[in-house]
Design a binder for these strands. Structure first.
Lengths: 173, 173
DNA sequence: CAAAAAAAGTTTGAGCTTGAAATATATTTT
DNA sequence: AAAATATATTTCAAGCTCAAACTTTTTTTG
């Protein structure tokens, strides 16, 4: 919103501040798009949080952590985990602490290195995650139900481009 | 991820669990799309948070509140504010408290009703927001730079559809 | 090898977020 | 007028989030 006229315009056709260069127009349209993208994402996220809470007594961050661990049978080190999820180290500590309390994951000492530990899903954790993941996929299809297969593919590609535009380290274990 | 075969399939052509109905395919593709959409949104949000913090010592929630207030010269009641932003009541209380401390907004008593108060931007708040909003638009264009005007329009429309699919009260002041 | 640097994790402090409970005030019913 | 109900907002507890500070351990290097 707001954002006056653009000083870098090449053709000052009109002297009024209401002048709109093509650059402005694109900028405004991208802003509009972003606001809608943010709103859509938040809506879907809110719905997911709500269902995860009601139906599984869990949260999205916990789900994210378990999803990451589910992809690595050998477990992940804390630093690798926060790297994969792209959240801060300290953040993951707390979430894993709670998952450990509930018996969904374990911290296994790494033999050679007394600093590090591998975080791994327990059997209970794997089972809980399997149930949640299945529900999760169903919810997404429900929430994005009117997006066709082809359209979804198109969107995925476009989002990939956006992701790649920003710096994308994407480190592994 | 995970999500075994779909029980509701109409044609059990293959007895194996690896069977994939068109319904499965679309479901998986939508999940893929959602994960990318979430990732993109988080990337952009993270970038915005970072810049807002560094350049203005502020946060996205504060910015959101100020943006909402900027659209209502007469101010908004707390309940209307949380309604517009679609966040909990208690949430807004804290954010507004901090904005008041910094002199960016004020709480004005509503004449007829001693329960309610109107939250309004101060001059300082309006000026701060104007600067932030301008930078914000620039950042968005930077972050979504390779999205063309037409493409942005298309995305906007599509997101609108997603938003409309979920319940959309959108109350006003 | 000892000092310095780097790496793995945790802790801390401040802020955001929610849902539920508490408070206060208004309005409606009885 | 008293009681019940509705509305406006705050408080609270639990959890998520980050950046920065801090331990402990390992690796590098002079």
């Amino acid at each position: 919103m707001i954002a006056e006229n653009d000083v870098t315009q090449t053709k000052p056709d009109s002297p009024l501040p209401e002048t709109e260069t093509p650059r402005d127009a694109a900028s405004k349209e991208r802003l509009r798009m972003w606001l809608r993208m943010l709103k859509s994402t938040r809506r879907v996220e809110a719905a997911l949080r709500d269902r995860l809470r009601r139906e599984f007594g869990s949260t999205l961050p916990r789900f994210d952590v378990m999803a990451a661990l589910a992809r690595y049978d050998d477990g992940l080190k804390m630093s690798a985990l926060s790297g994969v999820l792209r959240v801060s180290n300290g953040n993951v500590t707390g979430i894993v602490d709670r998952l450990v309390e509930e018996g969904l994951v374990v911290r296994v000492q790494v033999p050679g290195d007394r600093r590090a530990s591998l975080v791994r899903l327990t059997r209970k954790g794997r089972e809980a995650f399997a149930r949640q993941a299945e529900a999760h996929e169903t919810w997404i299809s429900e929430l994005l139900g009117d997006v066709s297969l082809d359209e979804a593919r198109m969107f995925s590609d476009r989002f990939d481009a956006i992701i790649k535009t920003d710096t994308d380290p994407e480190q592994t274990a």
